[in-house]
Design a binder for these strands. Sequence first.
DNA 1: CTAGAGGCTAAGCCATATTTATGGTCAGCC
DNA 2: GGCTGACCATAAATATGGCTTAGCCTCTAG
Lengths: 312, 312
Amino acid sequence: MVSRDKLPPLASIRAFEAAARLESFARAAQELGTTAASVSYHVRQLEQQTGLRLFVRHPHRVELTMAGVAVASEATAAFAALRASFVKARDRDEARLSLTALPTLGTSWLTPRLGLFRARHPDIAIELELSAEPQPLGDGRFDAAIRHGLGDWRGLRSVRLFPVLFTPLCAPGLKGAVGDLEDPSRPLGVPLLGRPDWWASWYRALGVAAGPPPGRFGTSLAAEHLDIAAAVAGHGIAIGSPILFRDEIAAGRLVPAHDLVAGDGRAFWFVYPVVRLQSPKIARFRDWLCDEAAAATAPMRNLIDHAVILEP
Amino acid sequence: MVSRDKLPPLASIRAFEAAARLESFARAAQELGTTAASVSYHVRQLEQQTGLRLFVRHPHRVELTMAGVAVASEATAAFAALRASFVKARDRDEARLSLTALPTLGTSWLTPRLGLFRARHPDIAIELELSAEPQPLGDGRFDAAIRHGLGDWRGLRSVRLFPVLFTPLCAPGLKGAVGDLEDPSRPLGVPLLGRPDWWASWYRALGVAAGPPPGRFGTSLAAEHLDIAAAVAGHGIAIGSPILFRDEIAAGRLVPAHDLVAGDGRAFWFVYPVVRLQSPKIARFRDWLCDEAAAATAPMRNLIDHAVILEP
DNA sequence: CTAGAGGCTAAGCCATATTTATGGTCAGCC
DNA sequence: GGCTGACCATAAATATGGCTTAGCCTCTAG
């Protein structure tokens, strides 16, 4: 005899439950997407395991026994509860999407657009955390992230948004004060703002091996968007992405200080764990985000195509 | 995305539930009688199917997420309910054992012994129905049967109890009045009781081709045990089983009218559906019945071994 | 600092469940 | 009253899915 409190095979219970509810092996097979023979096998299996007679077989119909009725009703309830618990968990999970992104991207590009997402998907609340350090996904804190890099994070699905680019940007009033930007050895009149390594990269893209000397830089700020804000205030020439700061340029608060747009081969990616490929809320956000990224890059096609991409 | 109300694979839910309850894949594997790799696989499977993150993986321990806690508690409850329903159904089913048997065996052999079974197994109530026609098993009316035959009923498990034998029996006072039983053509002085075909078989076993002429028989009764009762009353010589009527013989109410014991190759069998091999109540009754049959036949070993068995 | 425990991944195998095919029985229907 | 179709049982072959095995990494404990 089978142990008194061991659960019989669940597949068999499932087949039995459907057969009992539908009062037919054939219909149960249909519901379960299998064959009547399979249902018959499973029900018999269950009867043998439990020692209970669950169905009385009549030549072309089956009838539940007393024991069968009792077990079936409880099994139906148990399966319903199980299904309900998953649905409920998913509903709750669906209502909140937690993201992490880099401060610059979050502040200058993502935040202004999130309202549009919320308007289109009012059932999903977005939580956005900004941090310079990439936060790990998969520990339950974040559903997805926007990162920059090469898109090769293992265990994560990466969807490319747009390339990481940089170009000198300054306030319109400063444009005249800018001397010969192309030669880092000649005095410039205004300080450079932003990460020195980006400036160095940009000069490499220009064909100049030596980056600007340290004395050229103004106050060093924590993040790209802060440098840009400083540039808007007329404190110098910042280096930044023409895609991220397109609105500033379009509004005339910033102008390119030079035509050359450089890139380092990296891009911004929307990333989320492969195990959550099936998550509808992530899929919805991803699709929306891709559309936004496409809309943001389409008018800049020409600029992007002519960017000088350095080998990483 | 997986359909909103489709139940994920039950095997995966089961693995997850155990892992959640025990807070360890390794212990869950142990409980489920499988390996940690399998549990890991199933949990991952479930997470992919549902799009829910259920566990946070720490290097050498796992931790339930919010969603995991919610699902796990409901899953545990659902499984418990399922298990309970089977246990309850079995308990209820266990309390009553319904049997069908032949009238003669039931009246003369089984009924006197049932009290002993009840005394030893007070939790099982026996229902016994006697009928000359073999009742079908498997339609829910009877759990098991005692039949006579060759033990080759398909779909049924047969356990041999003792052989079907027959020998002439009469009241002690009649023994002297019996003439030459061995020659069916010579007058006998007393009528023969019981089924003419059994008498014919008995004479064949004796080596006499011709059975007794019809005129030799007394009143024809419906069942063997009624013939035996008539014999006890001194109305003639009955043919019947020395095993079934052992008590009558031991008490001196009947004596063998001849030494020859014949058999037709058949036996009494305890039979029950193969699908109920696991049924504890049937197993208990079967074991008890076999013991009783063994106890009843042991003292008659010699007699049984010397019986003349006819080819069926 | 080593040993042990816990978990992940990958790959190959095996078992389990399903399919396919056949047969039998009954109900409905010309 | 036979025919046809629906339904279930059974058996054998197949295939898919899940298990196991083996190796690795990380962390904890002694």
